[in-house]
Simulated assay, not measured.
Amino acid sequence: MKGVKVRITELKDYLLITVGSFITAISINVFMVPYKIAPGGISGVATVIYYLSDEKVPVGTAMLILNIPLFLMGIKLIGKKFIIKTLYGTALLSVLIDAMQPFTDYFVENYLASTESHRYTPDILLYSIFGGLLMGMGLGLVFRSGATTGGTDLAARIVNHVVPAFTIGQTLLFIDTSIIVFAAFVFKSVQLALYAMVTLYISSKVIDAILEGVNFAKALLIISDYPEEIASTILRDLDRGVTALKGKGMFTGSDKEVLFCVVQRRQIPMVKKIVRQIDKKAFIVLTDIREVLGEGFKTYE
């Protein structure tokens, strides 16, 4: 039974990689390459190569070639399961980009670059926004499966292994920014670089939303001289659990009970009203929570 569940989970992961790669390929072919938007990553480098080469080296092929040395260098840094999924995602994305190009080129030419009666100047800002949304959705699904599509995230892991002083996030930001600047020099356009930054920012936010959830909740820490009354009122009126943590006021030296509670954002005004009515001198700390698993919130997958 356990083996069957593992296989089903693996199948779901590869389905996510497939769907995610398909969506990412659409974003690159429809919104990125035709308008010279290179939002970092290997796809950004491949876009530059595509326009620099006389023979128009296919973007997918260039991405696959660029990823090969990264895999050879990083194969010792990542686990077997991760490398297999990442190889699948990388190869599939490259194949899809090249295989879908004739169809996406037709779509761009007939639906994005023209109207029924006349041609118009494309709204590149609009395309950079929607390109970022689609790319974020696609990559988010791939990352959620525990894989990547290779590229700069793998390069960042390698650099972090060699130079631990820089985090993976810092290294990734530096690499992607460098690629955007490089593309700006090649295309001789600061405007295109700004569009690429918009795409990169939006895609990163969408990836975060897919990986960490979008149903934000709020965590509260409440310090009061009337913890039991506040806790019982929250439990009764809001049907939310409250946990008492042991604390000590370092200024007064007195022991305190710190109440910890997680509520929906819409319930914040009610919590404030409850605390204010019971103890106007209470101290409340609010913080955002990206995802909550458990009773009353999101169920475990």
Rank of each mutant, 00 (worst) to 15 (best):
R240N: 08
T177G: 13
S94G: 07
I202V: 14
I49N: 01
E10A: 07
L134S: 03
K188H: 04
P39Q: 08
L200M: 11
T90I: 05
Q277G: 10
Q267P: 11
V262G: 06
G296V: 11
T90W: 01
G74C: 03
F130S: 04
M137L: 15
I202F: 02
T171L: 08
V95I: 15
M1A: 12
G247H: 08
Y120P: 03
L200K: 06
V57Q: 09
N29P: 09
A219I: 06
L192V: 08
G131R: 00
M73Y: 03
A193D: 03
S27C: 02
R266Y: 12
L238Y: 11
K2P: 01
T167W: 02
G146T: 14
R236Q: 12
D288M: 09
A147W: 02
T299E: 14
P39M: 07
I202M: 10
V263E: 09
G60P: 03
V275R: 05
I207K: 02
D105P: 12
V190F: 14
I234E: 09
I179W: 14
G89Q: 01
I78M: 12
L245Y: 15
I83R: 00
G3T: 04
V198G: 11
P69N: 06
A99Q: 08
I223H: 09
K80M: 11
T90P: 01
F166E: 00
K56F: 04
N215W: 06
I230D: 11
A231Y: 00
N29W: 05
A219K: 10
E109P: 02
S224K: 12
G138W: 01
M197H: 02
L15N: 01
L77A: 08
L72G: 04
D208C: 10
Y14R: 06
S94M: 01
L66I: 00
G146I: 09
A165C: 05
A231Q: 02
V285P: 11
G60V: 08
D98I: 03
R157V: 15
L286K: 01
S117W: 10
C261R: 08
G20R: 00
V159T: 02
T90V: 03
V258A: 08
T24G: 13
D13Q: 11
S114D: 13
I274Q: 11
A209Y: 04
F185W: 10
E291R: 11
N29A: 07
V45W: 15
L245A: 14
K5C: 03
A91K: 00
I78Q: 13
I23Y: 04
V30S: 05
C261G: 09
I175L: 15
Y106T: 13
S114M: 12
S232C: 03
V33L: 05
G146V: 10
N67A: 06
P39G: 03
D225R: 14
F107T: 08
V285G: 13
A25I: 06
T252F: 11
V181S: 10
Y50K: 12
F130L: 13
G132D: 06
P122C: 07
G40Q: 12
D153H: 06
P122G: 07
R236D: 04
T115Y: 07
F187E: 13
L112C: 04
L235R: 06
V214F: 13
L125C: 04
Y120F: 15
Y50P: 11
T104R: 02
L16M: 15
I124Y: 02
K281W: 05
R266H: 14
L92D: 05
S53F: 13
G213V: 11
E229G: 04
D105C: 07
A196S: 15
Y111W: 13
I23K: 07
Y88L: 07
